[in-house]
Simulated assay, not measured.
Amino acid sequence: MKRRSPILAAMCALTLLVAPATAQIIDTPATHAVILDNATGEVLYSKDGAEPMIPASMTKMMTAYLVFDMIKRGELKMTDRLTVSADAWRRGGFPSGTSTMGLVPKDTPTIEELLHGVIIMSGNDACIVLAEGISGSEEAFARRMTDLAHEKGLKSANFLNSTGLEAVGHVISAEDLALLAKMTVDDFPEYYKWYSLPSYSWREYTQPNRNPLLGIEGADGVKTGHLEASGYGLTGSAERDGVRRTIVINGMETMAARASEAERMLRLAFQSFELKTIAPESVSLPEQKVWLGQQGLVPVSLAEPMLIAGHKAAFENAKTEIVLDKALEAPVKKGDRVGRLVVTLEGRAPVEAPIIAEADVNKIGFFGKAIAGLSALISGNGG
C-alpha cells in the first residue's frame, strides 16, 4: 500500500540539500565508472559500476593487498627473499614486452622490493615472482586472491592471475575496485603510501609511477590498467579537508583521455556530490490512517537517520513517499514499525528507512465496529 501524495515536511528537510537548478547530472565516456565516499563506503555515482569488467593491471591492487594481509597474519616478512624463475622472467620481464620491474632469472629480491615493483612499476614479473614464491603457482595464488576478495565482500571478483594480463573470466566490478582501494587505505595505511611514490628503481632500471592524478590536490593513489580488451582504466583516490573520495573509470580509448577524465571525475567527486544525513527529529511526516481504531490517525516518524548520497542537482527533484507494510489496523503500539520512507534521487537506487508509530491506538469495541461499518456503507465504501 503506497501513499504517493507529497510529503511536505519531509521535502522541507530535503530542501536543505538542494543545489542550484543549473547543476547537471554527470555523464562520462568511460564504459564503467564509480565515485565512492570512503568514510561511509557509499557509492555516490555509478555507471555500470556493479557489472563485472576486465580490470587489467588494476588487478595488482588485490595482489598487493593479499601480500599485505599475509604479512599482517605473520605468514610472510617484508625481508623474505624470493627467487625469480625463468617463467616469471619470460612472461613478465623484458622478453614479454609488458610492464616490468626488470627482474632477471635467479635474482632474489625481497618481498618489500617486489611490492614496490608491483605498486609503482606495475611489474608483471614482480607479481608472478610473488605468486610462485608464495603459493607455488600463479593459479593457486589467484585462487587465494579470489577467496580473500570474497571474504572481504568483493563478490564480483574472479581472479585467474596475479598480473591482470588478459584471461577469459578474469573480472571484478568498478564498485568492488573502489572498495578494494578503501580497504587498502583503511587496513594498511603504512603501505598505502607507497602508491603515491613518483618512481622506483630496480638496479639500473627506473620506472615512473603511471598514475596521472599524482600531483593533483590530495591525490595519493592508486593504480592504472590497460589492455586492448578493456581500454584504459584507473582507480584513483584523494583526500581533501579530511574527506576522502575514490574514483574508478575503465574503457577509455587513450592514455590521454584516461588522464583527462580521471581528473574531471576526481574534481566532480569533491565539488558535485554530497553525502547528507536526515535526522528523525528534522522530518515531520503526515499521520497515517488506522482502521478500527479509537483514533482514526496515528502519528509516525523515522525510526533511524537516513543517509542520502548523490549529485547535488539531484536533490532538487528528490521524490519521497511513505510505503506502508500493510493497511494499518488497530491495535497499534507506539514503536511498532508500520512502513518505510523511500527517497529517490536521479541516478541512484532508492534509499529507505523504517517508519514507526508514535502513539498507541487501541481497537474499538463491538458497537464501534458496527458504527464504522454502517458509516462505510453509507459513504459507499462498504465494498
Rank of each mutant, 00 (worst) to 15 (best):
S46A: 14
E204G: 04
Q295D: 12
W291S: 12
E263R: 14
E321H: 14
E113Y: 03
K47R: 14
L341G: 06
E263K: 15
G347D: 06
A309G: 13
G365K: 11
V361G: 02
A359F: 03
N124K: 10
A353K: 12
V342C: 11
M306W: 09
I119D: 00
I322P: 05
L214V: 05
P280S: 06
T83W: 08
A372P: 00
G92T: 11
E132C: 02
A262V: 02
F367N: 13
A142P: 03
I120M: 06
R73Q: 13
V168Y: 14
E132A: 10
R337N: 13
Y195K: 02
G97C: 09
P299E: 05
H170P: 02
I35W: 02
S284R: 12
K312A: 14
A86P: 04
V168N: 12
K106D: 15
A56S: 07
S135K: 12
G380E: 01
Y45N: 02
V243D: 05
N381C: 08
T235F: 02
N161C: 10
P29S: 09
L14N: 05
K369N: 10
T146E: 03
I308F: 05
W89L: 03
V67R: 00
P350H: 08
V185T: 10
P20Q: 09
N209H: 06
V18E: 13
D80G: 05
F68R: 02
G93M: 03
E239S: 13
T235G: 03
I378K: 15
R244N: 09
E261V: 07
P331T: 09
Q295T: 15
I364E: 01
T98E: 10
L324A: 10
S375Y: 08
G310Y: 03
Y45L: 09
W202V: 00
P29A: 12
A314S: 14
S237H: 08
D125E: 06
T108K: 15
E316P: 01
E51T: 15
E281M: 04
L341S: 04
K155N: 13
V300G: 06
G97A: 07
V67D: 00
E151Y: 11
E346I: 05
V118Y: 01
L328Y: 07
Y65C: 04
A318M: 12
V129G: 04
R203W: 05
A140Y: 08
I216D: 08
Q288V: 12
N211Y: 07
V222G: 00
F94H: 13
A9C: 11
E217R: 13
S282A: 15
A370T: 09
V222A: 07
R91H: 12
V283R: 00
F270V: 04
V18F: 11
E329H: 12
K2Q: 15
R4C: 10
G293W: 00
L213M: 15
G310H: 01
S162W: 01
V338T: 06
G136F: 09
L214Y: 09
E175I: 09
K60G: 00
D325F: 03
L114V: 07
M145R: 08
R258W: 04
